[in-house]
Structure formats: C-alpha cells, structure tokens
C-alpha cells in the first residue's frame, strides 16, 4: 500500500534557489498535494505552497509537475511509476515569492483593465429572460477556476516577459468572449480585445486548452471565435458593402464600443 516517494522540490525565493531532494511516505489514492502536506507536517514546516479546496475547484495550488503546469491537488501519484522521482517547481511565467508560491498579481491587474458587464434593463416584471442554449456558451467559460495555468503555459508571456503589458492572456480572452457572447450585454468589446488585450498576438497553438484542468476549450470556443469576430468587424467585405448600401450590421445591435465617447 504505502511506499516511499522520491521528490525534488524547488526551494528558494527571489534571490535564487534550487531543487532539493526529499523522501516522503505516501499511500494509495493520494495526490501530489498530499505528499507536500506530509512534508510540511513532518520534515519542513516552512515549505511554502498555496492551496485551498483540495478538490480542483478553487485553482490555488497551481505549479509545474515534471515541467508540466498542473494542479497539485488533482495530480494523482498513481499517474507515476512508484520508482519515479516527481519534480515540483513553481509556475515559470510568474515571479517567485517563495518555494512553490509565485506572484500572480499580473492576472489581477489584467482583470482590472477589463470593462465590466453592462446589461440591458430588466424586463417589466423585474426579472430577466435568457434561453438556456444562449447562456451555455458563457457558462463554459465561467467554469474557469482562475488557476492561471493557461497564463503560465502561454508562450507569448512564458518566454517573453516584455509582452506582458500588452497581452492579457488566455484567461482574459475567455472573459472577453464570455461577455461578448452574453445575451444581455450591451458593450462591443471586440476592438478592445484586439488592441488593448493583445488578442492578435495569440497564434492559437492551443497550449492553454491542453493545460486547462476544467477542460474548457479555450482556443476553439473562445479565442478563435473572438478572432473571427474581430476580423469580421475590421475586414469583412459584406459588412463593408452593407455599411455602404445602408444595411444594418445586426452584430452591433444593442452593443456599443465602451471606448466610443457616446
């Protein structure tokens, strides 16, 4: 049942650090976070790691396991051979605070830059009506637990720190798409997504979708449709022709670009 697991864990802070070797007793059905908690309780009380729900619902315990962005609480030890050494390192795209804890404030800053939901007024009876089929697209994106693994893996920022100011990252393209597809929203965020959020820098390698622990199809369902809608607005010859001959582009019905002065 139980066995001794060999682990290598990155210990250190902003000034530097290195991988340290540990051996910890683990048992059947455990996840990587269990092994780390046991290390804390028995060998290294000050080992820094973020965690909350331990059920894959809060997105706190993001790190890299054998180089792959994963949630520590959803990575089962049974996925590895018992003789294998498991290496755990902090997310690479964000500055280290200590050990496995990184400074993810980049994401909270990007969240602040995004114009919020602007609904139409409620119906006369004080309620709102939306059809299930229309909310389901947005609901897929709202499954996001903000673990920021997609942000961590996205090579636009992972390998190019200087791209960060101009690039919001997959998590926020998801949010743009969610608001854009919201049946009751009145803003047109397409231009903003393209310019301010840097949607154009994404070259759809789908790395974000691969690491999403919620299985959200970030690239196919959010980023690509957003890109298409941005392009429609900019270059679609039919839209151009329509605007010339006075046909209204229904895509803009009930929506205004939040950057327009009126």
């Amino acid at each position: 049942m139980g066995y001794d697991l060999k682990m290598r864990i990155w210990r250190g802070d902003q000034s530097g650090g290195d991988l340290q070797d540990y051996t910890v007793e683990v048992s059947e059905g455990e996840v990587v976070l269990d092994a780390i908690h046991r290390l804390q309780a028995t060998q290294s009380g000050d080992l820094a790691v973020r965690w909350n729900c331990k059920a894959g619902k809060c997105g706190s315990c993001s790190a890299e396991i054998n180089g792959r962005p994963r949630l520590l609480c959803m990575t089962r030890l049974s996925d590895f051979d018992q003789t294998e050494t498991i290496t755990v390192t902090p997310m690479r795209a964000f500055p280290v605070i200590r050990d496995l804890v990184t400074d993810v404030s980049f994401n909270y800053e990007k969240a602040r830059e995004l114009p919020s939901f602007q609904p139409q007024p409620r119906d006369a009876d004080g309620k709102r009506r939306m059809m299930q089929v229309d909310v389901e697209r947005g609901q897929e994106f709202r499954k996001c637990i903000e673990c920021f693994l997609c942000q961590d893996t996205c090579h636009v920022v992972r390998d190019h720190e200087d791209n960060k100011p101009a690039f919001a990252g997959p998590r926020f393209f998801l949010r743009y798409a969610e608001l854009d597809m919201h049946p009751l929203d009145t803003h047109d965020r397409r231009a903003l997504a393209q310019d301010a959020a840097g949607l154009g820098m994404c070259n759809i390698t789908k790395c974000c979708t691969e690491v999403c622990p919620e299985g959200i199809r970030i690239t196919d369902n959010a980023i690509i449709p957003m890109k298409e809608r941005v392009v429609d607005r900019k270059f679609d010859p039919l839209v151009w022709l329509g605007s010339k001959i006075g046909v209204r582009n229904r895509d803009n019905d009930g929506r205004t670009d939040p950057r327009d002065p009126d």
Binding site: F117, P119, R122, K127, M130, Q132
Partner: peptide
C-alpha cells in the same frame, strides 16, 4: 436577481 445584473449566468 442582483447577481444577474452583475453578470451571473444561472441555469434557465
């Protein structure tokens, strides 16, 4: 209902 004003997407 206020949550819905702020963008929540409940099942219908």
């Amino acid at each position: 209902q206020e949550l819905e004003d702020w963008g929540a997407l409940f099942d219908r």
